[in-house]
Design a protein around this nucleic acid. Structure first.
Lengths: 215, 215
DNA sequence: ATTTAATGCGTATAAAATACGCAAACAAGG
DNA sequence: CCTTGTTTGCGTATTTTATACGCATTAAAT
């Protein structure tokens, strides 16, 4: 069967991911620099067009892998962006997800088929991005805050273990507000997924912190 | 600019809505009977293809209006369904929303350009639907339960007022579990959006109930 | 030894959720 | 007219969760 109605021909899906990390209490997002038009040489969130032979989440992960090298990441739905002229090329509807990763665990590809650069950029320092990616990023930050308590976001940030002060600082960075240190500890340790190791930090000029890890 | 890569040509978006109501403690969803192929004469959720000149939520509301006559409804995002062959015609990605309405407030169109019938069907009695709409409906029911406490869903079901026993029964129907009557009352009345009228129900063989309404 | 700074543990209070007792209001039936 | 059956409406007691905050412990620096 062939569709005749031109009202819905040549639509496409953009799979856009806001990939976050937190470095020393600074929330950052992965941006790539576009090699091609449209928006050549502009910074953008990671993403691209969905292929006809793949599902949306699969397309997200392929784009993430192709443009950053990241291959193992959990994604969470964030939003849909369908302004009619959001792409100058053809009608494209963006579906956006968020993901979180420990930036020290991965080496980001700086040059690929379609990107000439890539970097973790503090969310307080975001330039004008391609397409409507600034808007997508704003929604992504809200999603990040909404999901932090009921997903493995914190776990993704500390694959090798963490101290309570470390993870507390990260939590505050994501929520962008002060959380009582002692109450945070209590809530965190009531989580059965967290186990204490017998290691501690050392040589930092004050009391060493116990290292925990996620099951 | 023209897109050459055939990997993402001729994709389309399905805007699919699961519109719910609750009648006497029975949760029901609006189904329409398709007039055309594919899936001619099968029941389906309300929806259709997004036009190139409209945004997703706009397309949802247009489809709802065209196929049911409902024109005033709040929608909440539910899910994305992108199985490669979910449509036999061309590559279509479904975006689904839920909405809730008091079925007594509207007259559903039974015959339109594209539908030969329409009805409120109890969720325990859903037939095999067109496309992947059974799957979309399962997700929609989850969304309905997730959103009931933090949206105007209950308000939509009682546009003219309600008694506590009525709304309690509806709440239990949606969550599909027993909620303590007295605690539900307390929680509901702590909501500042609810005001007491000086009317009560009458002549029902027991104590009359006070009629409340939403601001 | 003392100071300084951060960690780890504890208690007290407030707010929200849950469990459940019981009187008041009405219709129906003797 | 009084009793029975049923549902509404209001109340209290308990548990759980969230919030506020005091203070001793540990280690480096002096």
């Amino acid at each position: 069967m062939e569709v005749k109605n031109p009202l819905y021909k040549n639509q496409g899906i953009h799979c856009i991911s806001a990939i976050f990390t937190v470095e020393k209490g600074i929330t950052k997002v992965l941006l790539i620099k576009r090699k091609n038009n449209p928006y050549k040489d502009m910074w953008a969130l990671v993403g691209g067009a969905l292929y006809n032979n793949e599902e949306v989440e699969q397309g997200m992960k392929r784009e993430i892998y192709e443009k950053s090298g990241i291959s193992d990441i959990n994604l969470y739905f964030s939003g849909i962006f369908s302004r009619v002229n959001r792409s100058p090329v053809m009608r494209m509807i963006a579906i956006s997800y968020i993901g979180v990763i420990d930036s020290e665990r991965v080496n980001i590809l700086k040059d690929t088929m379609k990107t000439s650069n890539a970097d973790w950029v503090a969310i307080t320092n975001i330039p004008k991005l391609a397409y409507d990616h600034n808007e997508i990023l704003i929604r992504a930050l809200e999603t990040l805050q909404e999901k932090i308590d009921n997903t493995d976001i914190l776990k993704s940030l500390f694959p090798y273990g963490f101290t309570i002060p470390e993870i507390h600082k990260t939590y505050e960075a994501i929520l962008n507000k002060i959380i009582d240190r002692r109450n945070f500890r209590k809530k965190l340790l009531s989580n059965k997924q967290i186990i204490e190791t017998n290691a501690t930090t050392k040589f930092e000029g004050n009391k060493p912190a116990i290292i925990y890890r996620f099951k």
